[in-house]
């Protein structure tokens, strides 16, 4: 016999708190993913560079980050760096730094695969009309690569959005932290965690639908 009586007023009373927490999580995700994509793109070009040292360094970065849990990375940056004398980051900046570095490694692999899969014929056509090297990248290679990798980019974005929950570990007041707070203050376990789960689900699903629209719009290829 289940002996749990739901009391949803605890959620309505904390609606503003939860909404703020959700928005903060989204903000952290957007910032980290934007930086992560930039890191990933630069890293992908470095990985493919003919300069062995650069390519090797990026390889180590990618493999290292992919094999370390994100939570450890967050702890290292938050607790470890100050020990080494780096104290300029607050907990928000620390989390964005950690998630960006983490996202960068994953996006690097996505972009590298995308760049490698671009048929040589498009590059040759762009050479033949006289585009300079950076113009070939800007007007032909990157747009084509973006379209080829769009499904992988979407997958990674959704997965990384959910990873913002780890910010709770360093007391960043995002959704998971807020739910834990409500739970701790009111002992309304089910209401708090069910609401948080529902909000993650709805948001991630909304992102997925939006990205599917983008994919449909840009899949004009092949």
């Amino acid at each position: 016999m289940i002996d749990y009586h739901f009391d949803w007023t605890v959620i309505t009373r904390n609606a503003g708190f939860l909404a703020d927490a959700l928005l903060l999580g989204l903000g952290l995700a957007v910032a980290s993913l934007a930086i992560g994509c930039l890191i990933g793109l630069l890293a992908a070009y470095a990985r493919l560079s003919r300069w062995r040292l650069l390519s090797g360094a990026v390889w180590i970065y990618v493999e290292l980050i992919r094999c370390i849990p994100l939570l450890l990375l967050i702890f290292f940056l938050y607790f470890g760096l100050p020990e080494l004398g780096v104290r300029f980051l607050d907990k928000f900046e620390t989390f964005v730094a950690a998630l960006s570095i983490y996202a960068g490694a994953y996006m690097c692999e996505v972009f590298r695969a995308g760049l490698e899969s671009i048929p040589r014929q498009y590059v040759e056509a762009s050479k033949a009309i006289g585009l300079r090297p950076w113009q070939r990248q800007r007007y032909v290679v990157l747009p084509v690569m973006f379209r080829i990798t769009l499904p992988s980019i979407s997958n990674n974005l959704i997965s990384l959005f959910k990873d913002t929950s780890l910010a709770a570990a360093i007391a960043v007041p995002e959704l998971t932290f807020a739910a834990r707070q409500i739970n701790a203050n009111t002992f309304r376990v089910m209401e708090a965690w069910l609401t948080a789960s529902a909000l993650y689900l709805l948001t991630a699903y909304a992102i997925a639908i939006a990205l599917r629209q983008v994919e449909r719009r840009y899949a004009a290829i092949r």
């Binding site: 014929q121 498009y122 040759e124 056509a125 762009s126 050479k127 033949a128 009309i129 006289g130 585009l131 300079r132 090297p133 032909v140 747009p143 084509v144 379209r147 840009y218 004009a220 290829i221 092949r222």
Partner: peptide, 24 residues
Amino acid sequence: SEARVSAQRARIGMVFQQFNLFPH
């Protein structure tokens, strides 16, 4: 230099066996 080579290529047009149109 690549810039000079690009400028030379711009004076020569090429049509390929596989068309090579930019797909996007």
